[in-house]
Design a protein around this nucleic acid. Structure first.
Lengths: 186, 186
DNA sequence: CTACTAGTGGGACTATCGTTCAGATACTCT
DNA sequence: AGAGTATCTGAACGATAGTCCCACTAGTAG
């Protein structure tokens, strides 16, 4: 009985996950505006009705995508930090590298994340998921000073969103002094 | 001849302006996703085709709205700064008050601005308009140190966007120490 | 007065949207 | 093997989207 339910759930969850990942790809490519049952289904290579079967509405799909996205990002960033720390780099370098990567190769993903982030401003139910991003950042630096830490958090988000409207993404080297200043105690 | 052209243009421009303002109200209320020819027309109290007459496409309408929005915001903030300075307040107080107002009574407008801001990330043609917001901030504080100023800019945008996913908007008093720290030289 | 043009307004066409529904399929348990 | 249930899918419906078309008004130039 348990095995049955779990086995089915696993299959169902797999399809569900595929749809969520396809949704994220669509958002990366065309933005939230490009998300429809049909575009997502085509991207995932599944029939249209599959998206309506697994998600009661498009809203549910977007919400699930944001939650999944935040979770993904959390684990990725954790891993990246771990890798950086194992190479003995310090905080500022990690952060600068992270920002450069988010604005360079992962630019589409970053845009998607901020679109979903902003979606949370209008829908209270997915604010907890959006705030998880702040939790990730919280784990990146020690914060004895609450105010300094709040400034750091704001600075990261600001640098990212401003980097998105730059014509060419800033490099880690360019970002480095800004992050240094941001982390410097006063 | 000149009078004729101008007279007609004025009439046309007026309608055009009404449509743009209606578009902004729609975005404030329902987000960019809620913008259609029909919702905008209804909001503006004009027939549907009037929006297609004055704007070749919905894209044109959104672009025009962002540009207008950035210009509006620029003049408003300039005025706000001027008023604050005439009362002899200092930089940090101005900024904290501005943020509190943007996240409190003007929350819908701030959301709209950031949605359009993020739209600029996908459409290079309206990045200049989006960057005008940074120009406004540039005029608010002296910036001898380029890096410090960049941190300040990022901090403001970060505080705003994070304030949007807070359940209750922070007050100017709560913001004050953060802004103080942000402006403190090191 | 007549011709002309920018602007206005209503209606309709076509595409696409979200969603529903009934039938097919695959898997589990007895 | 057969029943039962979760999962999947193709077709279709009604609603709504963007856009086009044509008639109409107002105001100017000749």
């Amino acid at each position: 009985m348990r095995r049955q339910v779990d086995g089915r759930k696993v299959r169902g969850e797999k399809r569900r996950t595929e749809i969520i990942e396809a949704t994220l790809r669509v958002i990366e490519r065309d933005g939230v505006a490009g998300v429809t049952h049909r575009t997502v289904a085509k991207e995932a290579g599944v029939p249209t009705t599959s998206t309506t079967y697994h998600f009661a509405s498009l809203d549910d799909l977007l919400i699930a995508t944001l939650i999944d996205c935040a979770r993904d990002m959390a684990t990725e960033v954790y891993w990246m930090i771990d890798r950086a720390r194992s190479r003995g780099s310090r905080g500022a370098e990690e952060v600068a590298g992270l920002l450069a990567e988010a604005l360079g190769p992962r630019r589409g993903r970053t845009m998607a994340e901020y679109e979903l982030y902003l979606l949370a401003a209008r829908r209270p139910e997915l604010r907890p998921a959006a705030r998880r991003w702040l939790d990730v950042l919280t784990s990146m630096v020690r914060h004895d000073d609450e105010v300094a830490f709040r400034v750091f958090l704001a600075g990261i988000d600001g640098l990212l969103i401003q980097g998105l409207i730059d014509d060419e993404p800033p490099t880690a080297e360019e970002l480095r002094p800004v992050v240094d200043y941001l982390l410097k105690p006063r």
